[in-house]
């Protein structure tokens, strides 16, 4: 690597002569070693999924969760250094709580992404800290209802609180991905970690922003997320893995606006379908898999 031996890569917040911050790039390397995370945003909600590589048989099955709830309507999943991810989640929860204290209402997903993007970026600015060794995917469903103020006791005037334009949509599903540099974008489908290349290729095949009838339902998105994690998993390199998935729907959907773990029955069904589709396409897919490996 060109960075090594130059001395410009030995401290955080140092620019190299060609304008790069190598420590941030190295942090990205830590992410690329972590289990694959995927987020899918469809019209009805958001699905988060993660491949948890089982490093030891002695781990308690199903007990070590990697997808975290940040507020009732918000979930976070991350790839990379797990303790860094925990720190990120702690901070996100603090932000969500502070927002509630100030505005008496839940934090919009976009604002949380912005706050956390700013937080990650701050860790690239100083020599006294190191960047986060994670890329985080933040999913949320901002309430489409006229949401009550926290602590509200009555209905107020029966003619309505006002302040909302008619025929305009409020709230909805949102998905963001935040990188170690603090950079973040909104996504229809996001993937990070070891298997991101394969996962991205699969995500691009889905109809996620379509207004047409073909666009994915939330339940289909759950099944696609499971399949994509299975596709992205590299049998030859890694041992066993556990699939963990969560979802967030609108008020009228299955989770009633809350971020929840995907029910066991649905997850197992999704896994069954994922394994099946993997077997079916095994023969045809052989060449393509070789290509993916080349890219890694």
């Amino acid at each position: 690597m060109t960075s090594i031996g130059t001395g410009y890569d030995l401290g955080n917040s140092i620019f190299s002569p060609d304008g790069r911050n190598f420590q941030v790039e190295y942090a990205v390397k830590a992410v690329e070693n972590g289990g694959t995370s995927v987020g899918i945003r469809c019209k009805e909600g958001v699905v988060l999924a993660v491949e948890k590589v089982v490093a030891s048989k002695l781990l308690k099955p199903g007990a070590n969760k990697r997808i975290a709830t940040v507020d009732r309507h918000l979930g976070v999943v991350y790839s990379g250094m797990v303790p860094d991810g925990r720190h990120f989640v702690d901070r996100a929860r603090d932000e969500a709580r502070a927002w509630r204290d100030t505005f008496k209402s839940p934090i919009p997903t976009a604002d949380l992404a912005s706050r956390m993007g700013g937080y990650m970026q701050a860790y690239t600015l100083y020599q006294s800290v190191r960047p986060f060794g994670i890329t985080a995917i933040v999913g949320g469903f901002d309430s489409e209802l006229e949401s009550p103020v926290d602590g509200e006791v009555g209905q107020g005037p029966s003619v309505g609180a006002g302040g909302k334009a008619q025929d305009k949509d409020y709230g909805g599903p949102f998905l963001y991905m935040i990188e170690p540099s603090g950079l973040y974008w909104g996504y229809y489908g996001a993937a990070t970690g070891k298997g991101r290349q394969a996962a991205k290729a699969e995500l691009e095949k889905l109809d996620l922003n379509g207004d047409g009838a073909a666009s994915l339902t939330l339940e289909q998105a759950v099944k696609e997320a499971a399949r994509i994690i299975y596709v992205a998993h590299d049998d030859s390199k890694d041992k066993d893995f556990e699939l963990e998935m969560s979802w967030i729907s609108g008020t009228n959907g299955p989770t009633k606006g809350k971020h929840q773990e995907v029910p066991k029955a649905l997850r197992e069904e999704a896994e069954r379908l994922a394994k099946k589709s993997l077997q079916d396409s095994d023969d045809e897919d052989d060449d393509k898999k070789e290509d993916d490996k080349m890219e890694e």
Partner: peptide, 8 residues
């Protein structure tokens, strides 16, 4: 109301 927010 303060307590309600606090408990939430």
């Amino acid at each position: 109301q303060w307590l309600d927010r606090h408990l939430k």
